[in-house]
Measured scan of single mutants.
Amino acid sequence: MQRVNMIMAESPGLITICLLGYLLSAECTVFLDHENANKILNRPKRYNSGKLEEFVQGNLERECMEEKCSFEEAREVFENTERTTEFWKQYVDGDQCESNPCLNGGSCKDDINSYECWCPFGFEGKNCELDVTCNIKNGRCEQFCKNSADNKVVCSCTEGYRLAENQKSCEPAVPFPCGRVSVSQTSKLTRAETVFPDVDYVNSTEAETILDNITQSTQSFNDFTRVVGGEDAKPGQFPWQVVLNGKVDAFCGGSIVNEKWIVTAAHCVETGVKITVVAGEHNIEETEHTEQKRNVIRIIPHHNYNAAINKYNHDIALLELDEPLVLNSYVTPICIADKEYTNIFLKFGSGYVSGWGRVFHKGRSALVLQYLRVPLVDRATCLRSTKFTIYNNMFCAGFHEGGRDSCQGDSGGPHVTEVEGTSFLTGIISWGEECAMKGKYGIYTKVSRYVNWIKEKTKLT
């Protein structure tokens, strides 16, 4: 034993070699072989497995989906700052455009905790909710729209109204504003409101030439003092309507412009014939205590009207009353817009006519005020429907199939267009061939041609 100890002390290297040989010859039971080890760690190889990531292109799944990435790591994937920024906006807080917040056709661009709407022409605001041009839906104005110097929408209202708090709607500024039905039992019968379409306001006024200088022999019209197929109006439903009495009662109609003036057809009036105007009328054979009678003290036909040349060209006249009318729910003026808007309103496509005229061709006159909704007829169809001249200051309205029309005794009465609950004068009943005849239409004086003249002559002093 002493000898062994001496050998170990003198030859430590020998001992180490012996131990190493023993270990190498022993069977290893701690580690699995290569094949079995792979069965336990069965993990798919990654895209760049075996390579240094710093030297390969980034992978979106590896960089940002398996674990949260930084902007720089995302930049490695896209290799483009702009594309990385677009991805980053949604990656950080989701897609803010998912709810489609942009209105009126706006395009949404996502941002971090926010979004941006790219608005089409005519709109602005956070969600493109603000109209900035009158060309689109009248700028959301209830009545009139004008573009300011910086191309912003400025709404306005006709006389007797003021802008509401929203700067879009119009509200009454006087007790009985024009064009409004205020009798409670008839307010439910107000005709369907007309909503502004998209309009090209630059070209809204037709490029028409008034044929002022045409000389033409007097034409022989049949029954051209021209509501057939209409309905009984309720008291106060058309408070701007008046009836004219002269040699015979209810020979023509008219509309209240203001307390002192009536507008009617020029062919209705004769110099030297006494005319009485009755406002607030409903049943011409009954006294309903809503009527107001006034005498006409002055007749002003349009300066281009000449019955000797043509009885229905420039067929418009103004009547001055001896005493002002007292405005109330049964006696209310009709609204008159400017030339541009009167023309736009007419193009809405349908209007209402009213009167006490004959209820059928050569038949009896109506006792109760009649009204009828009539569609506008395109000019080409209008011209083809008659052998008589249709001037540019006239328009056609009615039904091709016949059966409904204005008729004798309705002449001078109103053709009105309702705009968001307020009625505007767009025409004056003038003439036609018979009444409600198939293929024939009622012919009306186009008020847009005469609004400046009306307003100039009827100013209240």
Score class of each variant (00 low, 15 high):
Arg3Gln: 12
Asn295Phe: 06
Ala250His: 14
Tyr47Arg: 05
Asp232Thr: 14
Asn59Ile: 01
Glu27Ser: 12
Val4Thr: 13
Val195Phe: 09
Val269Gln: 03
Gly363Trp: 05
Thr158Arg: 01
Leu211Thr: 13
Asn295Ala: 10
Phe399Gly: 09
Asn222Met: 14
Gly413Trp: 09
Cys407Ser: 04
Tyr91Arg: 05
Ser406Gln: 14
Val278Gly: 04
Asn127Gln: 14
Ala207Thr: 14
Pro414Val: 14
Phe360Ser: 15
Ile316Asp: 00
Asn100Val: 08
Asp131Phe: 12
Gln241Met: 15
Pro177Ile: 01
Leu130Gly: 10
Ser187Glu: 09
Asn138Ala: 07
Phe176Leu: 06
Ser354Gln: 10
Arg162Asn: 12
Leu319Gln: 00
Lys455Gly: 04
Leu52Arg: 06
Ile256Tyr: 00
Thr209Val: 15
Arg294His: 02
Gly402Ser: 15
Lys362Cys: 04
Cys117Phe: 01
Lys146Gly: 07
Ala436Met: 15
Gln370Trp: 03
Glu418Ala: 10
Thr133Leu: 07
Asp111Gln: 12
Trp431Asn: 13
Cys407Met: 06
Val377Thr: 05
Gly160Met: 03
Gly122Tyr: 05
Glu433Arg: 07
Ala337Val: 03
Trp356Val: 07
Gln90Tyr: 10
Cys141Leu: 00
Gln57Ala: 03
Phe424Tyr: 08
Glu418Trp: 06
Glu323Ile: 09
Asn48Trp: 02
Val277Lys: 00
Lys362Gly: 15
Phe251Ile: 12
Ser49Tyr: 05
Val195Lys: 10
Asn258Tyr: 02
Ile15Trp: 10
Glu86Tyr: 08
Lys51Ile: 10
Leu460Ala: 08
Trp240Glu: 00
Glu142Val: 08
Pro172Cys: 03
Gln408Gly: 14
Cys97Tyr: 02
Val273Pro: 11
His314Glu: 04
Thr84Trp: 01
Pro101Arg: 05
Glu98Trp: 10
Tyr341Pro: 04
Glu285Met: 09
Thr190Arg: 09
Asn258Thr: 06
Glu53Pro: 00
Gln96Ile: 10
Asn306Gly: 04
His415Arg: 00
Ile112Thr: 12
Val242Ala: 05
Thr218Tyr: 09
Leu19Cys: 10
Tyr22Trp: 15
Pro12Leu: 14
Glu320Asp: 00
Asn306Pro: 02
Pro120Gln: 14
Asn295Gly: 07
Ile316Trp: 01
Glu401Ser: 10
Cys141Trp: 00
Val359Pro: 06
Asp405Met: 14
Tyr450Arg: 01
Gln167Tyr: 09
Lys438Leu: 11
Asn213Gly: 10
Ser187Trp: 11
Pro301Lys: 14
Cys28Gly: 14
Asp95Glu: 08
Arg364Tyr: 08
Val228Thr: 13
Gln219Tyr: 06
Phe345Ser: 01
Phe224Met: 14
Arg3Asp: 10
Gly432Arg: 14
Ile112Ala: 14
Ile334Gln: 00
Lys274Thr: 10
Gly357Ser: 15
Asn104Thr: 03
Gly58Ser: 13
Leu318Gln: 00
Lys438Ala: 08
Leu163Gln: 04
Arg379Gly: 06
Lys438Glu: 15
Glu165Thr: 15
Glu456Phe: 08
Gly363Ile: 06
Tyr371Gln: 13
Leu211Trp: 15
Asn42Phe: 07
Gly50Asn: 10
His267Ser: 10
Tyr91Thr: 04
Asn135Tyr: 08
Glu142Arg: 05
Arg364Gln: 10
Ile284Pro: 07
Glu193Gly: 15
Ser354Lys: 07
Thr85Asp: 11
Leu383Glu: 15
Val368Asn: 07
Glu285Cys: 06
His361Ser: 15
Val331Tyr: 01
Glu171Asp: 10
Leu318Ile: 05
Ala307Asn: 08
His34Ile: 14
His282Tyr: 13
Gly122His: 08
Arg226Ala: 08
Phe424Asn: 00
Ile309Glu: 11
Glu53Tyr: 00
Phe71Ser: 03
Val183Asn: 11
Ala149Gln: 12
Ser430Pro: 04
Trp240Asp: 00
Asn36Trp: 07
Glu165His: 09
Ile112Val: 15
Glu54Trp: 00
Ser25Asn: 12
Glu259Ala: 10
Pro177Leu: 00
Leu372Pro: 04
Ile136His: 14
Arg75Asp: 15
Val199Asp: 14
Ser25Trp: 12
Asp249Gln: 12
Cys252Gln: 01
Arg404His: 15
Val195Thr: 07
Tyr441Gly: 02
Ile297Val: 09
Val202Pro: 15
Cys97Leu: 02
Ile262Glu: 01
Asn38Gly: 14
Phe251Met: 08
Leu327Ala: 04
His302Asp: 02
Pro333Ser: 05
Asn104Ser: 05
Cys435Met: 03
Lys126Gln: 13
Thr29Val: 14
Val195Met: 11
Thr445Cys: 04
Lys440Arg: 12
Phe345Cys: 02
Gly94Arg: 13
Ile316Arg: 00
Leu367Ser: 11
Arg75Ala: 11
Asp378Phe: 03
Val257Gln: 00
Thr389Leu: 10
Asn222Trp: 07
Thr209Gly: 14
Trp453Ile: 01
Lys457Asn: 15
Lys457Asp: 02
Arg384Gly: 10
Lys446Cys: 05
Ala266Glu: 01
Met6Thr: 14
Asn36Met: 11
Val368Ser: 07
Arg46Leu: 02
